[in-house]
Structure formats: C-alpha cells, structure tokens
Amino acid sequence: MLTGSAVQTDYGPVQVRITVNGGKITQAEALQQPSGGRSTQISGTAIPQLNQNAVAAGSADIDAVSGATYTSGGYKESLQSALDQAGG
C-alpha cells in the first residue's frame, strides 16, 4: 500500500492511497478530499472516476505511461511514479 503526499489544490488538500498487488494497482482511494460548496460537487464525481481509472490502469498490466511531459514535481503525482514504486 502506497500513500501519496497531500497536494494543495484550488479546492483544498487531496491525498490518494493506492494498493498494489503483484505489481498491479488493485485499489485507489482518496484519503483527503475537499468538502463544502462547489468543491464537493466537483470532487464527488472526479474522485470516483480517478479510482475507477487507476484500477483500470492496474488491470491493464502496463509497464510505463506516456503523456504530456511532467515536471519533476508533477512526476510524484503521476501513474509512472506509482509504477516505479510498485516495482512490478
């Protein structure tokens, strides 16, 4: 189980934990998410989607992720970083 660092967003802190089994992401859940007003409405749909997609990525059995270039800071929040840590 890997817990990401909390990230400050415009809507409040977000922190995600992923569970890795046999080198695959089997579960992703939000430990911290913004609450109150519009941000609840936004995160209410965004967070389950992130969960579903991260799980889909895990079951896709991938070795690397291609996407628009991330910064060194952005890497820490990336799926590639999760794959590197999982070592699978």
């Binding site: 992703a28 989607q49 992130l50 579903q52 997609n53 991260a54 889909a56 990525a57 896709a60 059995d61 991938i62 070795d63 690397a64 992720v65 291609s66 996407g67 628009a68 270039t69 991330y70 799926l79 590639q80």
Partner: peptide, 28 residues
C-alpha cells in the same frame, strides 16, 4: 512521458505502455 522500448520484458509478454487520458487525470 515519452517512452522508448527495446526487446521484451520477459519470456511471455511484450512491453505495454498506457497512454494518459488528458481529459481524465489518472486515467488511460
């Protein structure tokens, strides 16, 4: 985010690369 693959990762499978979905962060 730009990947070069060579050879194979193991005896029974090819390299596989997820393409990040730009409109759904965290998704492929």
């Amino acid at each position: 985010g730009d990947v070069q693959l060579c050879g194979v990762p193991g005896p029974d499978r090819p390299w596989r690369v997820g393409v990040a979905d730009p409109l759904r962060p965290g998704g492929l």
